[in-house]
Amino acid sequence: MSTGKEELEVEEDFPVVDQDEVVEPPAEVAKTNLAKRRTIDALLAEKRLQKELEDYPYDL
């Protein structure tokens, strides 16, 4: 066991990072996600309506 009087060697090779060089990844904006969702919903609704038109009996 250690007696507590031993000196440990510590390597301090941490990279020095300048705060100006830190690049944060751009965060997704909620408005962008909402716009994408609305676009998808519109496309799905259009596809559903096209399917209904194909199935509609025109011989009234």
Rank of each mutant, 00 (worst) to 15 (best):
T32G: 12
P15R: 08
A35L: 04
K31P: 03
R37T: 06
L44D: 01
D41A: 13
A27S: 15
E11M: 04
K47C: 03
R38K: 14
L44E: 07
L43A: 03
P15T: 00
L43R: 11
E21P: 02
I40W: 12
K31V: 08
P25F: 06
V16E: 02
T39C: 07
E24S: 06
E28Q: 14
P15I: 01
R37S: 08
A30L: 10
K47G: 01
R37D: 06
K31Y: 15
V16H: 12
T39V: 01
K31S: 13
R38T: 04
F14P: 01
F14T: 10
E21V: 01
A27T: 07
E28Y: 15
V22Y: 04
E12V: 12
K36S: 05
T39K: 08
V23I: 09
I40T: 10
E21S: 12
P25E: 01
E28D: 12
E11P: 04
A27L: 12
N33K: 15
E28T: 08
P15A: 01
E28V: 09
L43P: 00
E46F: 09
A45E: 04
T32E: 15
A45C: 09
V22S: 11
K47T: 00
A45I: 10
E21G: 10
D20P: 00
L44F: 10
K36F: 08
I40N: 10
F14S: 04
T39H: 08
Q19S: 12
A45P: 03
A27K: 15
N33P: 02
L34F: 07
A45R: 14
N33Q: 15
P25C: 00
P25D: 02
E21Q: 01
D13R: 14
T32W: 13
V29L: 15
T39W: 06
D18C: 00
